[in-house]
């Protein structure tokens, strides 16, 4: 924690990803240092999710490099990737809890899989993590029995279960009420400021974004259109940025798109889940 290590936690260099003829990510570069909270924003289909999937190693870039903890993950095999993945946590947009397990088992899963702790110790950690997200006593419910916002908070507890050095959040506050949003934001701030965790947050929620960000990136059509501290972004002269952060219906980003435009702009690939190494891809024969 107290080393004066200046290697960025995440370093993305000239990331390019092409799906067929469409360039989804076009030369994205940025760095995130220890203890920073980077917020990535941008309209739907601008490549945010694709970017995140590349950084967690679920997809491979066409060109460019991604370094996490100073190691290039773009050429790693499954096992090396797994050792990197043990050091970060990820909160999925839907929570992505395992429906067949209880809330407690979900949070305990990464701990019992990756450590040799006794069941009692694991229980203690699970209780503490659930308490952090305001869900004390929910251990025995199934994900189907709790609300969407609660699922997301359980997802956050699970992402934090192993005290990761790095946290990825995909829309952590969508679907949460304003109070819970504040709780989650406060938690992120505490973790980054006090225990030196680094966070990368993808969000649409501007209040929350300006509250937690130490740096921000705005993506548009696959490249970075603005980058800087919250203050710099707020005073950005770029009309597209202003339209986005002020939430105006019409502006440089037009309200109506024709089908053609849409196909041109909509860069979202059919969600290629699972790892991109073809081990588990596509359909049955």
């Amino acid at each position: 924690m107290n080393d004066v290590d200046t290697t960025p936690v995440i370093e993305v260099t000239d990331l390019v990803r092409v799906f067929g003829k469409r360039t989804v990510l076009n030369g994205v570069s940025f760095k995130i240092h220890r203890g920073e909270t980077m917020v990535i924003m941008g309209g739907s289909g601008c490549g945010k999710s694709t970017l995140l999937r590349h950084i967690i190693g679920a997809m491979k870039p066409t060109s460019g490099s991604i370094k996490i903890f100073g190691e290039d993950i773009t050429h790693m095999d499954e096992r090396e990737l797994a050792s990197i993945r043990r050091r970060f946590g990820m909160l999925f947009q839907s929570g992505a809890l395992l429906a067949s397990m209880t809330v407690g088992e979900n949070v305990a899963l990464p701990i019992s899989e990756h450590s040799q702790l006794s069941d009692d110790d694991v229980d203690q950690i699970v209780k503490r993590k659930l308490q952090m997200v305001g869900l004390t006593g929910f251990e025995h419910l199934k994900p189907a029995e709790i609300s969407g916002g609660m699922k997301k908070r359980v997802g956050l507890a699970r992402a934090l279960a192993l005290d990761p050095e790095l946290l990825f959040s995909d829309e952590p506050t969508s679907g949460l009420d304003p109070i819970m949003t504040a709780v989650v934001d406060k938690l992120t701030l505490e973790l980054t400021r006090e225990s030196g965790m680094t966070a990368l947050v993808v969000t649409h929620d501007m209040t929350s974004a300006f509250r937690i960000a130490s740096n921000m990136i705005m993506l548009g059509r696959g490249s970075i259109i603005a980058q800087g501290t919250p203050a710099e972004i707020r005073s950005s002269p770029n009309p597209e940025v202003q339209q986005f952060i002020n939430g105006e219906a019409d502006g440089p980003v037009p309200l109506n798109l024709s089908q053609d435009d849409h196909e041109h702009r909509q860069h979202v690939a059919p969600r290629p889940l699972i790892s991109a190494r073809g081990r588990l891809s596509r359909k049955m024969p």
């Binding site: 993945r85 395992l98 429906a99 990464p110 899989e113 699970r158 889940l273 699972i274």
Partner: peptide, 15 residues
């Protein structure tokens, strides 16, 4: 599980 991202979540947890 695949559709609801559970399998992807497992991979990201290095499971």
């Amino acid at each position: 599980m695949k559709v609801s991202e559970e399998i992807e979540a497992l991979e990201v947890m290095a499971i």
